[in-house]
Design a protein around this nucleic acid. Sequence first.
DNA 1: TATAAATTTGACCAATGGTCAAAACTTGCC
DNA 2: GGCAAGTTTTGACCATTGGTCAAATTTATA
Lengths: 246, 246
Amino acid sequence: MPIQTSSPSRKEREFIAREELILKHARRLLLEKGFQAWNMDQLAEAVEYSKGTLYQHFSSKEDLVLGVATQSLRQRADLFEQAATFQGRTRERCRAIGFACCEFAMAHPDYFHTDMLLKSSSFVEKASQERREAHAFEGMRCWRAVNTIIIEAMALGDLPKDRVTAEQATFALISVTVGSHIMSQEPNLKVFAGIKDQMQAVRLNQDLICDGLGWKPLLHEHDYRATDLRILKEIFPSASKWLKAA
Amino acid sequence: MPIQTSSPSRKEREFIAREELILKHARRLLLEKGFQAWNMDQLAEAVEYSKGTLYQHFSSKEDLVLGVATQSLRQRADLFEQAATFQGRTRERCRAIGFACCEFAMAHPDYFHTDMLLKSSSFVEKASQERREAHAFEGMRCWRAVNTIIIEAMALGDLPKDRVTAEQATFALISVTVGSHIMSQEPNLKVFAGIKDQMQAVRLNQDLICDGLGWKPLLHEHDYRATDLRILKEIFPSASKWLKAA
DNA sequence: TATAAATTTGACCAATGGTCAAAACTTGCC
DNA sequence: GGCAAGTTTTGACCATTGGTCAAATTTATA
């Protein structure tokens, strides 16, 4: 039997498949019950392996949850990079990423809450080094997708360079996006702010930041309704549910 | 002995004092170790009361943490309302609240992380109804402090009414603020974004939102450096550490 | 001081994240 | 097929910890 260094052996494939099975069920439990209201015994029963086997894949419950979050974040980065290929002016491409993030948030309604959990050092310290690095890597991909467009926008003159650096602009967009996704899920705030469509609220805040940055064309200078329809058609053809929002 | 309905009896005063003692030590543990890495036995030992006594004040560990967070949030609301009295144009007063929030964030470096914990339904469900209501009340005070200024700004014509409603504007400011506070604590992002002063990063993002809203006078139309010095002198005279940032 | 009421205590319980020796299974050889 | 060595899986078991409650202690009252 030849040793295949390139393609994984049957054992390795089974190991990977099982890991994905575990992650799938853990994700479901996390979505249904949050972090606390399920335990490793329940998960073991759900995946039809023993608890000991779970711990061959994940060093702790926190490590497992970080694994779930990283899987999600990878999808987010994929969507960001896909959206960045949108043909149009820089601000339109940035807008496409905004849509990508909303698409992601709808597919993963618990992601931002879980991600906030991860920001507790006491939480993330219980996860393995590798998984922490994998998570940081996917986070970097998201950052870079936005940052690249902003650098290009500055080079083209769409975005003034004298107000903020490209990095400050990227940080502003990411902050407002995460903050808006979190706050728009808050029941009290939803009532106060009269939020009917959470994703629309998020994108409005992104628009405000972009206008504040002076990113041409400004909101009132361009027919972004047409852009939105193109984004939905070209980048997210499956997201027909959004047509009303655009 | 006359029954005093107005002023609390000695017993009641002792009860309140003990509750504050418990909250004080719980806050310290929370700041030092996060949520998980301390237990009720350690807290009982620290306050020199038994665990049973702790549970006469708080229905669960989560209830206790919510109590700590609400105490903090009350201070935040106090600072907001104090800052709102700043004499100046509406945007300057909003800016004063921005400073208040930074002042608060420096005094409570763990607050936003804890607050994110609270947003997990599985967490807050374990807290008592009264404490949940108390927390919502203080949150509302913060919201109102901002919202009131925005309504006034729209009435005075400082803030255009045709772009967004007062509530949308308030939501945008709160979202960017919370998002920026959280993200500016993220070590990876701090490196990518080259953040040296976290609070300055937060306030820059607030400025971008205000400019995006068209809130007069815009950043480049006014000497906000002078405003900042006045805010620090008149509202936060103790915050001399900030003079460099202003 | 004696009795009753109120408060405090900490041993105890149940739940749960994590471990590891033993069982079960796979592989390779004759 | 049968056996032995190696590998994987298992679940009983452990330690920790949030939460309880009957007993002990303290306080108020007569």
